[in-house]
Design a protein around this nucleic acid. Sequence first.
DNA 1: ATTTAGTTTAACCAATTAGTTTAACCAATT
DNA 2: AATTGGTTAAACTAATTGGTTAAACTAAAT
Lengths: 203, 203
Amino acid sequence: MVEKKNSSTEQKILEAAMLEFIEKGMAGARMQEIANRAGINKALLHYYYRSKDKLFGVVFRQVFHAIAPKFSTIFQSEEDLFDKIRHFVSEYISLIHSTPHIPVFVLHELSSNPGRLSESFMDISINFDRLKQQIDEAVEGGRIKPIVPEDLIINIISLCIFPIIARPIIMPVLYEDNPDQYNQMIERRKTQAAEFIINAIKS
Amino acid sequence: MVEKKNSSTEQKILEAAMLEFIEKGMAGARMQEIANRAGINKALLHYYYRSKDKLFGVVFRQVFHAIAPKFSTIFQSEEDLFDKIRHFVSEYISLIHSTPHIPVFVLHELSSNPGRLSESFMDISINFDRLKQQIDEAVEGGRIKPIVPEDLIINIISLCIFPIIARPIIMPVLYEDNPDQYNQMIERRKTQAAEFIINAIKS
DNA sequence: ATTTAGTTTAACCAATTAGTTTAACCAATT
DNA sequence: AATTGGTTAAACTAATTGGTTAAACTAAAT
């Protein structure tokens, strides 16, 4: 018992639950397995989080928070539009690459459980106002080609997230299952994807 | 009993199973619910497909085939590169938009079941050779900016699929939960996404 | 020394679920 | 009329699983 008893147990449970839920989804996750991963037993698990539902709710919110707020922080900054795109693409690809299963987990749960989880957006303030404004200004100032701000935002995010969540398909199909080649591609994207976007819009 | 008895039962089961599996995933799907959806009873369901595993295998393969081969057919054609991109983007967005849950389903199952399903790629011949060649030629001929063919292919596919699978996030966050606005965006993309890509690469 | 919060062990309950079995039914075939 | 293949209904098995309970143990705090 080197452990300081309780202290981090709640946290250990949460981390174990995150792993299990992200890997197997709500339906596929097992409370026993979460307990195992946390190095505790089932009774204690229920002692901390009364039910699977409750625990899942906490995990989902936490996981969602882990990837969503980055939007605001970078997008609301006062950088130049092009630099902001470069900055965001690089940072966001790094973030997602470090936790590649999260987006699929979130999308799958939202997809198979429409409604119930939509509250999760409520508390998160994803704010694109400054970025939208910047895009509009750049369009009107003739710096970039006409584009609906929302469309550009969607393009940027698509190019960051999809190549990472589609790894199980991309790696075998395009890179003969060679992880190095795949990782090189992701590294490349941190700069290349941004330039791709900028080339697409600059007039 | 207007039905011609057996004949289409196997097909009805398959369709019901597709719905259930795509919606709930392998772990969340229920054999009883599949039987209900097919309008038959559980005994008959097992009579046709011995086990859930077997049924899932058939469904997964079939679902995967439904969205993968389009790659080859369009990408191997002898169209001009830019037209091919326009053609593919429009067709593929339409296809995915008509069955928006499939990509998330596939990615989720591949993600939570690495290995076991990788055989599914085997039989499918996704062939990008002609497209890669075309891109290389266009780069060497100076028609487009230098780019690794694989990178461009990934960009194209990302811009088609992601905006559709991320609908549960995009619609509330960017369009105040208004489906019309969302659908307009998807319609717009059928042409705009292609032009975005072409602008990004043409020199 | 006693209390207390955290923890374990192990048994247990109730519900769900994949899969099986049996008997009967129906419609077309022979 | 008898056979046959598809089908149903319903009961059942066996395993899994979420959740509970009760008793005992441990270490720190009082």
